[in-house]
Design a protein around this nucleic acid. Structure first.
Lengths: 340, 340
DNA sequence: CTAGGTATCGTAAACGTTTACGGAGGTCGG
DNA sequence: CCGACCTCCGTAAACGTTTACGATACCTAG
């Protein structure tokens, strides 16, 4: 079912049919309607290869999902909810969204290079960004329109959007200090990563602001998993100078933290206050309810789509965008226990 | 960076360059190597549109992910692990994998129709199949190579692969009966769905086989979520004639079941035996450890990829394939409590 | 030495679209 | 009544590949 078949069936030339389908001006309204009717009747859709070859654009946005990342595997499908919203926003503008799984077996940078060269999409969205991210350097050098979901330390004029880790940590610490906590631990990725740096800086600044002693060793590296949560909790319980609150930068760690506390005969909230980054469906089954941020994932998805389209169209995009996270307090944070 | 640029840079014609890149016979081994070296040096990859337009095939498999389904949202990224393995198996054969998110906003059948017409992939994999699935009818009618991940009641010659729900239920009931259970409940989707029908039939057959009274009302419809798990548990606890074991056909329901039992002052395993479909990472934090099936998701992914390639190549595929699920017994099933 | 064969490469057509350009017919003002 | 303009449509080139076919140079057997 080509455009040629469609044209023959209508007794028209393919040029006219194409113009009719693409709403070009110089075609008789009556014939245009005839063409449109025949198209839906015969189930014609323009062949993607032919169209994008001629147009030089694919009308497609590629979302590169690093499937090996812990953040993808855990959680209540964080990414799927974002992608759903992106899909809606993009298709409203005539764009398609495809997800490209980049697994750990292949080099992420090579994957991006190949994706650019193949010309499969008009823009690329990269996730799981790192501080020194060669994918971003590559995208900048190749002048490929792209958006980074997650910040990086690569200099240059490009758009990125990320969650408000800073606001999350600041709000958490404020709440905890208001309850009387003085020694607060927070998990972080290794300090070489950009999130790690950000959390360290924010921790120091907030300590100063709230009048806490700043002990950098309380920013504790932890694996992004349930097991990371239990490991960091155990290490905290073994400390000489007791910590009374723990802030987790990945929500699934809460499962590990709760179970480590129970194994030690302690109860979350009462013996150790727990805060985690994002409210997710699974967390609702933890008792007491865990204090976490409400993050509008659907809004985030549409925002990502919008920014990406602006990059494609060459409009000056919001170069840096921090997506708000609003802390919702529950019973997992309480006043610190009386000193033994 | 066209093939033309590459050819000019090498002082060759584009025909020769193309033949060299595609390992065609009539090209000098020395020039071939020269071409390959220049290609990696200049970062050349064949433009997808041009190639697939000429070839008539895209060397791409599209995995249509129904992002609105509960099974996608829950779990420890069931699909991502499958997709990872598919990716490896497909790229080893020179194929690419793209994921097409089909969200609830659009009609799934229209989405498939458009995907076919656009000619974006050589084969389509559909998920979240239903008993009467118009997508499968459409794919059959259009002669598009496809594979259904999940069974359906649509007649026709097509390949599908699905988890072994039947074996799961049979193994679970055998174990439970061996422990002394006589009244066993099992959750199921509405009986109009194919899984619902399958579970009903298997339940009846296994009851007969094991000498249990067959009470069809013990196949209980339940929502595929944590809340579905707690709802069904509560309804069981309210029964006059007590049920001593509960089999959950979706793993995340275990969270709900455990918390409902705790709320009633009961303990899982001791007061009510619990079995669930799949071992997932999150479940490890439930106490006692929940009895569930080990399912080789990576193997499943490679199998899906293999079958899809066979469909594309017109080789007779394994039309129907049930992927094994092996029950791993833990402390969540125990002998039934003495009758009060 | 020549005819035929082989190895290697260039040429050009084709895939399905879009779009600049031109042409035929009709309308209208002078 | 005639030239100018507008409306509508067909023609053909172009996008980047692949591949059938032909061409050249070289080699070998007779």
């Amino acid at each position: 079912m080509n455009i040629k078949d469609l044209a023959q069936h209508l007794g028209l030339s393919i040029g006219t049919v194409s113009r009719a389908l693409n709403a070009k001006p110089d075609v008789n309204p009556k014939t245009r309607q005839r063409v449109l009717d025949a198209a839906v009747e015969l189930g014609y859709s323009a062949n993607t290869s032919g169209r994008s070859l001629r147009r030089g654009s694919t009308q497609t946005v590629a979302f590169v999902l690093e499937t090996g990342q812990a953040d993808v595997r855990g959680g209540d499908n964080f990414f799927m909810r974002i992608i759903d919203a992106m899909q809606d926003a993009l298709s409203a503008q005539g764009y398609d969204l495809i997800i490209l799984p980049s697994n750990s077996a292949s080099d992420p940078t090579e994957f991006i290079k190949r994706t650019i060269a193949r010309g499969i999409a008009d823009a690329i969205i990269v996730t799981a960004t790192r501080a020194q991210d060669s994918r971003i350097e590559l995208l900048l050098k190749s002048h490929m329109p792209f958006l980074a979901f997650g910040r990086s330390q690569i200099a240059g004029d490009y758009a990125w959007i990320d969650l408000d880790f800073e606001g999350f940590l600041r709000q958490s610490m404020q709440q905890l200090v208001a309850l009387g906590h003085r020694r607060i631990a927070v998990t972080a990725p290794p300090s070489t990563s950009n999130i790690g740096v950000l959390l360290h800086e924010t921790y120091a600044a907030t300590c100063a602001q709230l009048g806490l002693d700043h002990d950098p060793s309380l920013v504790i590296p932890a694996e992004h998993s349930e097991f990371g949560g239990s490991a960091v909790t155990q290490s905290i319980l073994a400390m000489d100078d007791p910590v009374t609150a723990l802030i987790l930068n990945y929500e699934m760690m809460a499962f590990g933290a709760y179970s480590a506390l129970r194994d030690a005969g302690l109860s979350p909230g009462k013996d150790l206050s727990i805060v985690t980054l994002r409210r997710s469906k699974q967390l609702r089954f933890l008792e007491p309810a865990v204090t976490a941020c409400a993050i509008d994932l659907e809004g985030l998805g549409t925002q990502i789509a919008r920014e990406t389209l602006r990059v494609i169209r060459g409009e000056s995009p919001n170069a840096a965008l921090v997506w708000p996270a609003k802390l919702v307090v529950s019973d997992s944070i309480q006043a610190p226990p009386a000193r033994a």
